[in-house]
Amino acid sequence: MLTKDLINRIAGATGLPKKQVEHLLATHNAIIRETLMDGKAVQLPGLGTLEIKERKERAIVHPRTGERTVIPAKNQLAFRPVVNLKNELNKQ
């Protein structure tokens, strides 16, 4: 399902004009991004949590050349689904 379909469906389900749904979705996503950038997790009710996970710095060895390099620490966006959702999806 693409964003377009999603917007159509939401508009259909809520009776809100498509334009407004589009606007709401964009704002919603912007808020999520900004929150994440602040290092905060975002709860998507009924779906799960988007959070930032820290990946530690680690040393790797190139298997061919034996070269050693350090991959710097970084933050990654991770999604932790609600347990409920998994059960629901796997019911069928």
């Binding site: 399902m1 999603l6 469906r9 979705l25 996503n29 779906l47």
Partner: peptide, 23 residues
């Protein structure tokens, strides 16, 4: 909107196994 959004995402996952949310 929020309720519909999450409901639709769940629905979409069930149906298409994939939901793309731009942004």
């Amino acid at each position: 909107f929020l309720d519909a959004l999450n409901a639709q995402i769940r629905e979409g996952l069930k149906q298409d196994k994939q939901v793309k949310v731009n942004g």
